[in-house]
Design a protein around this nucleic acid. Structure first.
Length: 660
DNA sequence: TGGGGTCCT
DNA sequence: AGGACCC
């Protein structure tokens, strides 16, 4: 819903100008640092503010060796290969959390493909260990006051997707266990997804694929397929499907996908659950920093308006540069962007709304060196003014050469974005000036928040081929004529012991049934996850926590019926899942006593620096998206940025005696 | 409809 | 410089 239509519905709505994402970034940073501190290989990749993949295959392999199959119940998971005491006890007879595929069985018992069950057994063992590691990490994050969801699998794609299966505050391991089972499980899992749900297949690609499916299925049969509901299975059932066919289908898209796709071949392998992309090593320096503002409902028309906005934006940008590109003391730049980019979106006619990025145009230029001159007494203001006057405004005029159709000398600008990029990075550990005192072993200056995680085995990275048989020479010659083989018959999964743990954020359920939005476990005394117990009984408690949590999840699901969302508060949730259906009951359980205003702690709702949110866009087409909560008082969806304003709104109501 | 990001042409 | 993808 646009702000304009929100205002139409609710004229009293107070709109707060400009979201400040700083609090989100800070939390993100903290949790990312936490996760990173557990990694042995620093392969900890983030996506957005709230997702992380971790490649933990090294940790898993180490711990496979440690397993004592004669006493699985009392296993020890070692978190530090130099300190055997660092770790946690767990029960290796079963998986932690939920499992997709086969029954939920552990390493013992008949027909489990058990501990010594060959390659499949080994993979199962690794996945099982990863599930326990995932639980451990998730509990650590809960100690910080946040909840997560997590997927565990053998590559990033699968881990991310399977993390959605038991969405709120839970984890799921995708059991893909070898030639006899693995591919079946993976294909069954993948096949059930709508095309658009596959990461890497975005709106354009999904539309093209759907069109193709519809064109193919038309002659024969039945009901008119809804493009959005076409599944991977549907598409794969098209007889004529081949990589080259897909290539031509997608050729009109100038480029495809971020996963390095673009080719039909790649898309096909995605559809089969293959994803050779490695978890990228943690990066301390972003490749780009940008600040933008939109003026959708009230386009900027005068050059003076534009100048003022550019000053605001540039001021924030300089601040961001200092927090993200300087060392802790703000003494030294760790990286200097070399390029400055200005992007605008001339407001187009209402009809032309089409793409989300429609009409964006940009210009790049060198970033003047004076930007890095610090220590100025007047602060940044001079720098900002100068940059706007000397660089940004001229760029703007180039971008918007003449006055638009207004007839006069007016602009009509719906968006401004200022970006610094092309980082010239100064390696902190080798930088001349520096801290002799201690190598940069401090990771606290990283960003991140918690969400996805992965684990895989770099050693097998070359066997990219989950997609294509590692067919020796055929592989080498492959590029000569790529298409023919549609049946990218997966390689032997047991060949591919990559583990991929995907941790994704979820929700927080108020533990006492009272609708308080507190994020902190410690605040509301949730007994199952307190620090205290964990320290007192490290061995038994984590397992108990797992059990308790699993039981709690079952209870929750049970008494809530099929709708897991009731009476949950969601804190930063994924974009595309069905958890939210926007019906009012989703957030507020009418069976619960209606809260009075005193019961509602807006600080808590906002807590975590505003991490609370509700997913709005479940169809993934970009509409209705936005983070926020449903107000317990009026049941309206309140975007995060408007939360405090909304709170004020109710206080005013109360003040005026209109409430009640 | 928002305020960011990444990678690939 | 722009497009496609991600949150």
């Amino acid at each position: 819903m646009s702000i304009a239509s929100a205002l139409a519905i609710c004229p009293d709505l107070v709109i707060v100008d400009g979201e400040d994402l700083t609090p989100f970034r800070d939390v993100s940073k903290r949790l990312y640092a936490l996760l990173r501190s557990y990694s042995w290989n620093d392969r900890v990749e983030r996506l957005g503010l709230d997702e992380v993949w971790m490649d933990v295959s090294d940790i898993i392999e180490y711990n496979v060796e440690l397993l004592n199959r004669h006493d699985l119940e009392h296993s020890w998971f070692c978190l530090d290969n130099k300190d055997p005491e660092k770790g946690f006890a767990f029960d290796a007879r079963g998986f932690a959390g939920q499992v997709y595929g086969r029954e939920k069985v552990g390493l013992e018992g008949p027909g489990t493909g058990g501990y010594e069950g060959g390659q499949a057994g080994l993979l199962r063992t690794k996945l099982l260990l990863a599930s326990h590691l995932a639980l451990h990490l998730r509990l650590k994050i809960e100690e910080e006051g946040y909840t997560t969801a997590c997927g565990i699998s053998t590559n990033k794609l699968l881990a991310k997707l399977v993390g959605n299966v038991n969405k709120p505050r839970n984890q799921t391991t995708l059991l893909s266990l070898g030639p006899d089972d693995g591919e079946e499980t993976v294909q069954r899992f993948m096949g059930s997804h709508q095309l658009r749900k596959i990461p890497g297949i975005g709106g354009k690609t999904a539309a093209a694929l759907s069109d193709y499916f519809i064109s193919q299925s038309k002659p024969g049969s039945s009901s008119p397929p809804n493009p959005k509901e076409i599944t991977v299975d549907d598409l794969l059932s098209c007889p004529g499907l081949s990589p080259s066919k897909l290539d031509s289908l997608l050729s009109s898209l100038s480029s495809s996908s971020s996963t390095g796709t673009g080719t039909g071949k790649h898309i096909l392998s995605l559809l089969q659950g293959h994803d050779p992309s490695p978890v990228k090593p943690a990066r301390s320096i972003p490749t780009q920093i940008s600040i933008e503002d939109t003026y959708f409902s009230c386009p900027l028309v005068t050059i003076e308006q534009i100048r003022r906005e550019l000053v605001k934006i540039t001021g924030s940008l300089l601040k961001r540069m200092k927090t993200d590109l300087m060392d802790d003391d703000k003494k030294r730049w760790l990286a200097r962007p070399k390029t400055l980019r200005l992007t605008t979106r001339p407001r187009t006619d209402p009809k032309e709304g089409r793409g989300y990025g429609y009409g964006r145009v940009s210009k790049s230029q060198g970033l003047p060196g004076y930007v890095f001159n610090n220590g100025n007494a007047h602060g940044d203001d001079e720098i900002v003014q100068r940059l706007v006057a000397e660089t940004l405004l001229p760029m703007f005029r180039e971008l918007n050469p003449l006055n638009p159709r207004k007839g006069g000398k007016e602009y009509s600008i719906g968006l401004l974005n200022v970006c610094v990029t092309n980082m010239d990075s100064i390696d902190p550990t080798t930088a001349g000036g520096g801290g002799s005192g201690g190598g940069g072993r401090d990771i606290k200056n990283m960003f991140m928040r918690a969400r996805e995680f992965t684990v895989y085995d770099p050693e097998h990275e070359h066997a990219d081929n989950t997609g294509t048989q590692p067919e020796t020479e055929a592989e080498l010659l492959e590029h000569s004529d790529v298409d023919v083989d549609v049946d990218v018959h997966a390689g032997d999964p047991s060949h591919d012991p990559d583990l991929n743990l995907d941790m994704s954020d979820t929700s927080y359920e108020s533990s006492n049934g009272k609708a308080r939005g507190s994020l902190k476990n410690n605040d509301n005394g949730d007994p199952s996850t307190t620090n205290h117990q964990q320290q007192q009984h490290p061995v038994s408690t984590i397992h108990e926590q797992a059990q308790a949590q699993a039981q709690a999840d079952r209870d929750t699901n049970h008494h809530l019926g099929t709708n897991m969302s009731t009476n949950h508060y969601y804190f930063h949730i994924e974009d595309d899942d069905e958890v939210w259906d926007d019906s009012p009951d989703n957030v507020w359980n009418h069976n619960e006593e209606e809260p009075t205003e005193e019961d509602i702690d807006y600080d808590d709702l906002r807590d975590a620096e505003g991490m609370s949110c509700v997913n709005g866009d479940s169809d993934g087409d970009g509409d209705g998206d936005g983070d926020g909560i449903k107000c317990p008082l009026c049941n309206h969806f309140i975007p995060l940025f408007a939360l405090s304003a909304h709170e004020r709104f109710h206080s005013m109501e109360e003040f005026e005696g209109e409430l009640d």
